[in-house]
Nucleic acid binder design. Structure first.
Lengths: 106, 106
DNA sequence: TGTACGGATCAACGAATGTTGATTACTCAT
DNA sequence: ATGAGTAATCAACATTCGTTGATCCGTACA
């Protein structure tokens, strides 16, 4: 199915975006609510360039949104992205946990 | 919290394990039920060494289990791993979607 | 016991990722 | 207009990850 493939690709980029400690920390911080980059550099004690890189990865995956305002840019969790993530994860659960379905090894 | 850190590390390895097309394909195949490596090499039309590598990543992350029997090794989804994955994903959902909580940028 | 098969492991290589520091662009206050 | 502050982008480099082919190990069957 095309939709299966699409979900697979979406899965890859979602999972990849979350497969990094720094990015998971960012997500945890954003659970507290919208934050600007300077909040995050303080909180995570890391360089601005590095943070910007990771924020971009999360944003490209659709997991967070940015809202530039004046000199600052505010980042927040993206509910849609998280819902898609949940959908992908749900799809991983074996629909039929059939036992002994293995076929041709004799 | 230590538990938070633990969940974060678990998250990193779970997400990393799933951040690859081949490995997602393997997971999809295993939804059909237990399969031996030869089933999978056929199905995915790929080399045995490559497959073995990816199976190991999934297994190390706790997402699948192996059951050697005779000359064959059967792989299957690991329900516990998938449940942990779901737990990690649930934990990502913002508990409080507070708006305007951003603090110190003036 | 020997040989054929399934599968894990290893070394070597190339590709993709993450890090760092410098530069750039934009906004605000003076 | 100038200078200071915020954040994105870039180039260079280091590290990690995935691929491939060879080799090794264990099991089964002659």
């Amino acid at each position: 199915m095309t939709t299966t493939i699409k979900r697979r690709d979406a899965g890859v980029s979602l999972f990849h975006a979350l497969s990094d400690v720094t990015r998971l920390e960012i997500m945890e911080r954003l659970k507290e609510g919208e934050q600007c980059v300077c909040d995050l550099t303080d909180a995570l004690k890391t360089g601005q360039s590095r943070l910007s890189f990771h924020l971009k990865v999360l944003k490209d995956a659709g997991l967070i949104t940015d809202r530039p305002e004046g000199r600052w840019t505010y980042y927040a969790l993206n509910r849609e992205g998280l819902e898609e993530l949940e959908a992908v994860v749900q799809a991983l659960r074996g629909s039929r946990p059939r036992v002994g379905s293995s076929s041709r090894c004799r």
